[in-house]
Amino acid sequence: MSEAIQDDQDLSGMPMMDNPVMPYLRQERIPHIWCPGCGIGTTVNCFTRAIEEAASDLDKLAIVSGIGCTGRVAGYLNLDSFHTTHGRAIPFATGLKLSNPELSVVVYSGDGDLFAIGGNHFMHAARRNMDLLVVCVNNFTYGMTGGQVAPTTPIGATQTTMPYGNFENPASLPFLADAAGATFVARWTVYHVRQLTRCFKEALGKKGFRFIEILAPCPTLFLRRNRLGDGVDMVRTYKEKSVLRNGADTKEVGLGLTGEIVVGTFVDRERPTWLESMNDHFGKVFGDRYSRYGG
């Protein structure tokens, strides 16, 4: 599958259900491109409820995506939104935030985008404590290109480029985020809609490099190929296998093809953001001659 999906269908005349998240979406762009049973839409639902509950100033909230199925999220949200290149949402968001610090900037992308091609940027933005909320919808696969092995694919799972089963060690995303210096690290699944909504709201109210991993089913390319059922089956699995462990040591939250799924808020700490550090430092170096950047 490629990006050859046509997005110009005019569906503006079609009746829309009166859904509370609709004001937060570009309604003329619905229906979205995601498959039936895909978990990405559920995460967007939770995100819009969170920004509603948080009463965020929507004009000052910007969203940046990379490339892939989750990369399309930016296009559906009725915010200033940027659909960038594969793997580079974080450095784009870095430039956006530093250029206009009054913005609240959210990066919303997939596991392949953020952690394979974009892994280096993730590490450095976390290290710098760039003031970004990074949301990773982890479906363990490359959806848009047709189900290739991802940096998160569990050992044993079959993918088109691991036709005999994956033998590569997957990355544990919360562990990476923690080690790189993120100030807030949480994991939920699309089963946990209330918790996820709360988590979004909490993370939006904090500053620094914040990371939320959301496990989501890709029925078309991951579940079916690995005989894991459909989207509903997977949500049931999330319910059964999830174990809430706030404050868990991120070394202990790795995921397998089966087995328990540790969820919760693992890291919540404060450290100065990149911009705060720069302003404080230059204030010391230059004294009164320095005007704080971004107010």
Partner: peptide
């Protein structure tokens, strides 16, 4: 962290 990042950070900067 690299030229890929530098060359897209400026694009974010322009839209900021």
């Amino acid at each position: 962290e690299d030229e890929l990042a530098a060359s897209i950070a400026i694009l974010g900067g322009a839209w900021g």
